[in-house]
Nucleic acid binder design. Structure first.
Length: 367
DNA sequence: AATCCGGGGTC
DNA sequence: GACCCAGGATT
């Protein structure tokens, strides 16, 4: 007969309702099976500020391409970045590979199992260290993420902003207090799973909650007030011109700086969209022709891109470092940001249409 | 404590 | 459109 502690209630629910995820052992796996800590490391890096549904396909491809921590350590950083392409927060990819290399060089290829050593790894903070220690090694480490914050605040009817310093201290203390003596990784996973499936930000499913009898927010009818809404400042708009400079089947692309947004990724030649920059490209070409516009929305700003097609007279001299002429097919070897992936799609459609026009022209002339 | 760092799911 | 997401690093 199951005990009625908080942990046993939550774990009982978790055993019946948890999702089957590629970095998780199947529910009927024998207890002798061990989770591969490398899979937990990769999944936790991808899951930072990113929803499970978005991560799943990226995770599968990433593990297929880099099956072990050694493989990831040896890989070309550009290949790692390309595997991350489209997922966002690209410093995570850089940090993950740096962590893999550090683990190989300083920990003999074995991921450390205690929080203090895990915290030395780049890209691993308090949450990720706790997740690795508990989920991969079943060590008694607390975790506090967005889900756990919401669940704990509602359980205790705490109405303050969980991002504040005082609440963060309280949350970590509370997360440590509730750790059970067994199945620690499952318990921490269950807290997050509850936040993702039941104790959701909007319209939580309190009737289905396994611990509803312990929830003060539910008893006091204040669930919808927790956590308090956050104020978002207006997003500035950034306007850019993207020049698809074309010559003999190739386009000119450039690599972004090593720091800042989309660090180290590649793009078509991009300039601020203030005045006409087309004369400053240093390449002789026909008048640029606008072929489309696209918007790209980020959390804190908004981009508007005007896409121009430019037919260059010649490729000129060897392009400077950080610039290269590539075909659209070769472009798949370079990591591109989402908006520039869309530009590449526009150009591919354009080339397809040009091909079809040529075919029609040749068949009609044959008649 | 505030900002920066992407992109997408969800209501 | 607003909010949030298995956060971390930097200032």
């Amino acid at each position: 007969m199951p005990k009625t502690t908080f942990a046993s209630q939550l774990l009982h629910w978790y055993d019946r309702h948890r999702r089957s995820l590629p970095w998780r052992l199947s529910a009927d796996a024998s207890s002798a099976d061990r989770i591969d800590p490398y899979l937990v490391l990769v999944s936790e890096a991808m899951l930072q500020q990113t929803q499970v549904a978005t991560v799943i396909d990226y995770f599968r491809r990433f593990i297929a391409q880099f099956p072990t921590i050694g493989a990831l350590a040896k890989a070309d950083p550009q290949d790692v970045l390309r595997a991350w392409q489209g997922l966002g927060y690209y410093s995570r990819a850089r940090n993950l590979q740096s962590a893999a290399r550090m683990i190989v060089a300083e920990f003999g290829g074995e991921i450390p199992s205690n929080v203090d050593e895990l915290l030395k790894l780049p890209g691993v903070g308090r949450y990720t260290a706790g997740a690795l220690a508990s989920i991969a090694f079943d060590r008694p480490a607390p975790i506090v993420d967005g889900n756990v914050s919401r669940v704990l605040c509602r359980l205790e009817a705490m109405k303050d902003d969980p991002r504040g310093k005082g609440m963060q201290e309280w949350l970590w203390k509370r997360a440590e207090q509730i750790i059970p003596t067994r199945r620690i990784g499952d318990f921490n996973s269950a807290m997050m799973e509850l936040g993702a499936l039941v104790c959701t930000p909007k319209s939580p499913k309190c009737l289905l909650c396994p611990v509803k009898s312990r929830c003060r927010a539910l008893a006091e009818r204040v669930v919808d007030q927790i956590p308090p809404p956050r104020k978002r400042p207006p997003r500035p708009i950034h306007r850019r011109q993207v020049f698809a400079i074309h010559c003999r089947g190739r386009y000119l692309i450039e690599q972004r700086p090593a720091k800042g947004r989309w660090a180290g990724m590649w793009q078509f030649i991009t300039h601020p969209w203030d005045e006409d920059q087309s004369q400053c490209l240093g390449i002789k070409m026909d008048t640029p022709q606008v072929i489309g516009e696209l918007e790209h929305e980020l959390t804190h700003r908004q981009y508007q891109f005007q896409v121009l097609y430019c037919q260059a007279k010649s490729m000129g001299k060897k392009p400077p470092a950080g610039r290269v002429w590539v075909t659209l097919a070769e472009l798949s070897r370079y990591p591109l940001s989402r908006p520039h992936l869309k530009v590449a799609q526009m150009l591919a459609r354009r080339e397809d249409q040009a091909d079809r026009r040529r075919l029609r022209g040749s068949s009609s002339s044959a008649r």
